Amino acid sequence: MRDSIQRIYGALLTPSKLPDQIHLSQEELVEHIIHDEHFQTYPPARSYQLKFWKHIVEKIELANEEADERIYERHISLLSQGAPSPFDYMNGPPAPSYITRFWNAPSSESNVRTSRRSIALLESRTTIEDGTTGMRTWRASLILAEWLIRRPEIVQKKRVLELGSGVGFLGILIAQLDGMRKSKLDETHSGLRGVPSLALTDVNRTVLERCENNISLPPNWFDATSLDRKESLKAQLEEINAEVIIGADIVYDLDLIHPLIETLGMALSAGSVSPQPYRREGLIALCARSEETLSRFIQAADSRGLDLRSEEWGSLGDDIFDDGWGGESQSSVRLFTVTLRQSRGTTQKILHSIS
């Protein structure tokens, strides 16, 4: 029941598609819609929510059932914000809405884990917005997506180019399919030939901006800390077999520190580097804007078994690159060399120095 309820609600489908006995599933409606963290963060348009809960309340009343007060509260709360008018179109097109599409990998595919996935997009609710039709997902994309879900080998481990990517639905799906591989990357590839990549393109700059924003939504991310995805990420990192891992200004959000450190740890320990003995290393440059964020980053690295060594910038000047911002000096940027721990102490010393 959860799947059908969330699929309908997330995709803004007509509530009439709900099961006839939906009034008997009030607890599921509360748990999987009202209290669901995803829908709290990425809710459908308010006009759709009104239509959805009106349908539910009517179903409950027609069945002479006692309604859960949380359902009534949600409906009343939406009504209190004003009911939509048939003349609203005169004030302009409806605002974009979050649309979430859920899908399951078929269990018949031996090279794909059976797992429920979601794709959340901010989409237009009109045919044309800003002079383009690319701000929403169209039927052909949905059909092609279903086809690829049943034939994931077409895009897995491949370098894929999508033309006219629109708001990013197909691209995100392809990335999720590739992230669900159980097997190691094809060992017959060498160098970058075996490294999957995905390029999304469009002719409209506004569409590309919307696409980029949608790709960055957390529900669409590849979560390195998720147990069912670590195996796939590990295989990709082993294929890349990087000797140096670099990153700049990627430590800015407390929620991202754990997956970042987990990915760093996997990249530093993946594959083999020759000639031996060679210790691969990471170079992370970050702006020390928040002492808490910096401290959490260092603590997370220590817990993961990574050693951080603070590097000195030396006599670097500002004569090569000038970003024109003027707000952050060289001294506010910290540089760390990251390696797998050989002996304890380095990271602890850094922690002590900032405490």
Rank of each mutant, 00 (worst) to 15 (best):
E231C: 07
L283C: 13
P44S: 07
F321P: 00
D249A: 10
E123D: 05
I119L: 11
L79D: 04
D302Q: 13
P196K: 06
E262A: 13
H38I: 11
W221V: 03
F87V: 08
Q6D: 00
R151I: 09
M266W: 05
Q49D: 02
S80P: 01
L306G: 05
Q348V: 13
S165F: 05
L264T: 00
R46D: 06
S303H: 09
L351A: 02
S355C: 05
F222W: 09
I149R: 10
G271Q: 01
A145W: 12
M180E: 02
S107G: 13
A301K: 00
Y9F: 15
Y278G: 02
R193N: 13
K59W: 06
L308V: 06
I284A: 01
L50W: 02
Q21W: 05
E238M: 09
S47P: 00
I250L: 15
Q236M: 15
P44N: 08
E238H: 02
I240M: 14
G168E: 01
E162Y: 08
L335P: 00
D20S: 14
S118V: 10
L316D: 03
K54F: 13
D249R: 10
M266Y: 12
A267I: 03
V251Y: 01
Q6K: 09
D186G: 11
T293Q: 08
D249G: 07
A270Y: 06
Y278V: 13
G179I: 05
P259L: 02
F87C: 03
R7N: 08
E153F: 11
D228P: 02
V333H: 05
A301T: 02
I143N: 04
S295K: 09
E312P: 08
Y72H: 09
I22K: 01
R181W: 03
I119N: 01
S77W: 08
S115R: 12
T206H: 09
H55S: 09
A285L: 12
S110N: 10
L227N: 08
V195R: 03
T188P: 02
S303N: 13
I250S: 00
S295T: 12
L351P: 04
V244W: 14
M266V: 08
N214K: 09
E187Y: 08
T127D: 07
N91Y: 15
D36R: 07
E109D: 12
F222L: 11
